[in-house]
Design a protein around this nucleic acid. Structure first.
Lengths: 225, 225
DNA sequence: ACCTGAACACCGTTCAAGT
DNA sequence: ACCTGAACACCGTTCAAGT
């Protein structure tokens, strides 16, 4: 079999498998990522992958691990609040590059070394800032997934506006009766978004609003000690 | 609630399907819930279910819907903060009865009428408390999943202590080098938990700490207007 | 109107067999 | 040591056929 027609076959490695999985999830979504398709992507049978990863859970753990490694440590100086804020917003940047990542992180139950290292560094920032062990512990709970740069957004704001404007207008009448407050809020949002190019900016505003509210609250807790 | 295979066969209804699905998830976990198994549970072929639910997504939507309906509206009077706090802690109670519910909620993208009604009532509490539309909107983002009574706990506290005490002690030495802050925190927690019966109480403490920190922050935002 | 059998197009994973 | 073919035990979903 001549190999000239195809690219010279690199040997499979764990890293190459993870990179291919991430690239595929980036372009097709995680829900489309199966062992068979990943094998296909690498020019290999699905079963070969098991020589480099234990199983699909291990694959997903590894993918998340790579993303967390991508979080850059901003060279910020200052108090704990400034440093932590920069670190979390940096994590958010890494997450935004991989839209599937937050959904997968939520399903992880195994701590990976990279994840441990990240959490350890966050706790370190707090401890050096004067947080007691207990307060640092509570902070981890308060931040939750926000520590990694994503929030548990229950539903998308824009969902209600997905229908065509004419249909939306009719639905609005019905909605206004049953859900007056949501309707009121949705209309306000749709006004706002008309005046902005894109919605990414808005999301950042909401994320920072929540983050700062929490950081301010923590600062008060710290001062109270 | 689930009919045994020998009982006289009740006609299948959407509600009976949802109740059976919830009961099965309660006892076996959602990951074990398949259309085939649910059919089995109801003494029926899996394909019959499609006469009452559109597909599995619809099944999960319906299950969540039932849980949200189970959230009791506490008859609390007072300011927005007291009322909202009671409502969220009541939501937490409903969620605790169904350990799988929060994981499923996180994957929902379709708003159901019951979900809309719940969110509308929360926004209503805020608006009556003097929140502007914008601040009410931000509040939804700040609360995120906490509005429904659960937090995005990234990893379980107790995980590090799952191994046997002897092995844990050896691991601790290695861990202390690589992850000093996590180790310090984990040891503090293990001390605390030794003095308490069960951990459910502790989880409530963390939940309330975070909730109160957020509510206090919102109160300050409100006063600033 | 509701339920079923058979079938389709997938999954993750194993294991003996090949190179 | 790594890769493959075949197979196992599952999935969700469809559709024509039965009652």
């Amino acid at each position: 079999m001549t190999a000239t027609a195809h690219a010279p076959r690199l040997p499979l490695t764990r890293d190459r498998v993870l990179q291919a999985a991430i690239a595929y999830a980036d372009k097709a979504g995680v829900e489309a990522l199966s062992m068979r398709r990943l094998g296909q992507e690498l020019g290999v049978e699905a079963m070969s992958l098991y020589n480099h990863i234990a199983n699909k859970e291990d694959l997903l753990d590894g993918m998340v691990d790579v993303i967390v490694q991508e979080i850059e440590e901003p060279a910020s100086t200052g108090d704990w609040k400034t440093i932590l804020r920069a670190r979390i917003l940096s994590a958010r940047q890494a997450l935004l590059r991989h839209p599937w990542a937050s959904a997968v992180m939520v399903t992880r139950t195994n701590m990976t070394p990279t994840m441990m290292r990240y959490m350890d560094s966050v706790i370190g920032i707090l401890r050096r800032g004067g947080f007691s062990i207990d307060l640092a512990h509570h902070t981890i709970h308060v931040l939750g997934s926000r520590m990694l740069g994503f929030a548990q957004e229950l539903y998308d704001d824009t969902e209600a506006l997905e229908a065509s404007p004419e249909i939306a207008a009719i639905m609005l009448k019905q909605m206004a009766d049953e859900y007056p407050h949501i309707t009121e809020l949705a209309m306000e949002i749709s006004h706002d978004e008309g005046s902005i190019v894109g919605t990414g900016c808005d999301d950042l505003f909401e994320f920072e609003f929540a983050l700062d509210l929490i950081l301010d609250g923590l600062e008060r807790s710290l001062e109270r000690t």
